[in-house]
């Protein structure tokens, strides 16, 4: 079976994740959508690594994981801080940028 199928799976997961980011108002759920998009990219990288028969794709996926871990830490800290200030993690409420 062609590993390209995994790339198609990655594309589907990416679109689901992006839809989640756009549709969900709960900041944590939207954040999980972001994580899913990152993971779909990882999946594509690993699949390409397999297709090309070299390790650089896996290395890149590893780096993405590390960066994602750091991002999660900061992102969740921000969510906590916002929750402290507003007693809510809804993405619709902080609309101070409204022109």
């Amino acid at each position: 079976m062609n590993p390209m199928n995994y790339v198609i799976l990655a594309a589907i997961l990416f679109s689901i994740g992006s839809a989640a980011v756009l549709l969900r108002r709960n900041a944590i759920v939207a954040f999980m959508g972001v994580e899913l998009m990152l993971n779909s990219a990882n999946l594509a990288l690993v699949a390409f690594s397999r297709i090309h028969g070299e390790l650089n794709g896996q290395i890149m996926a590893f780096f993405v994981m590390v960066v994602a871990a750091a991002e999660v830490v900061v992102g969740l800290a921000i969510i906590i801080a916002v929750f402290r200030a507003r007693q809510s993690i809804s993405l619709d409420e902080p609309a101070e940028l409204k022109g």
Binding site: Y6, L9, E35, V46, S49, R50, Q58, A61, M65, A69
Partner: peptide, 18 residues
């Protein structure tokens, strides 16, 4: 999937990290 794609190390890291 990572394991199936020949990346057992990443599969383990995925479990541990994610």
């Amino acid at each position: 999937a990572y394991v199936g794609l020949g990346a057992p190390f990443l599969g383990v890291v995925q479990i541990v990290v994610y």
